[in-house]
């Protein structure tokens, strides 16, 4: 059984920064997925991922509810993304990203999924991030977001539906283009 977030946070606060590694491992996919969906530029997203974790580490003392580390972390990622968008680059549109990506195809990247994911409303995106990218159970999500378990599964169900709809829409658009 792996340790919970609270344990690692306490270790960090007790002066063991290397224990933060476990939290980075655990939440890196979620932070990465979130930031790619916001920044639409992979190299900027990588910087932003690091920045998010470093800020989180130095902000651990401020985190009151340690069980909610994941949603707190995504909040930091959100601020980092906004800053990057404001300070560094004009918002690149998804077509440009897609063009970039077709130039350098990477088999492991599910670009269609990423594009659909980027278009999800915040609430749905958050639940997908926590469930699949942070690998949390619905109970953990309910605890983190302070919402009833039933609402979590309902939101998840709607998030699924919307994600599927977005994916189908993409497919339809592609078919139109190719015809």
């Amino acid at each position: 059984m792996t340790q919970n977030d609270k344990y690692f946070i306490e270790q960090c606060l007790d002066g063991r920064p290397d224990e933060f590694r476990h939290l980075v491992t655990r939440y890196q996919p979620a932070v990465n997925a979130y930031l790619t969906s916001q920044l639409h530029n992979l190299s900027n997203a990588e910087d932003a991922v690091q920045e998010t974790f470093v800020r989180a580490y130095f902000g651990l003392k401020e985190l009151k509810k340690r069980e909610s580390f994941s949603s707190w972390l995504l909040g930091i990622a959100n601020r980092v993304a906004k800053e990057q968008v404001r300070n560094r680059m004009p918002l690149a549109d998804m077509e440009e990203l897609a063009a970039q990506q077709t130039a350098e195809p990477n088999d492991s990247d599910d670009l269609k999924l990423q594009r659909a994911f980027a278009q999800l409303p915040d609430a749905y995106r958050e639940i997908i991030l926590l469930r699949f990218y942070a690998n949390q159970s619905c109970q953990q999500i309910a605890q983190n977001l302070t919402m009833p378990l039933g609402s979590v599964t309902k939101t998840l169900s709607r998030a699924y539906a919307q994600l599927r709809q977005l994916l189908e829409q993409q497919k339809a658009e592609e078919n139109e283009v190719s015809q």
Binding site: V24, Q28, N32, A33, Q50, F53, Y133, N135
Partner: peptide, 16 residues
């Protein structure tokens, strides 16, 4: 599987 593809040990080391 998309989540797995986003895992990179590099990031951990850089952050630490």
């Amino acid at each position: 599987s998309d989540a797995k593809n986003r895992q990179s040990a590099d990031v951990e080391n850089r952050v630490i």
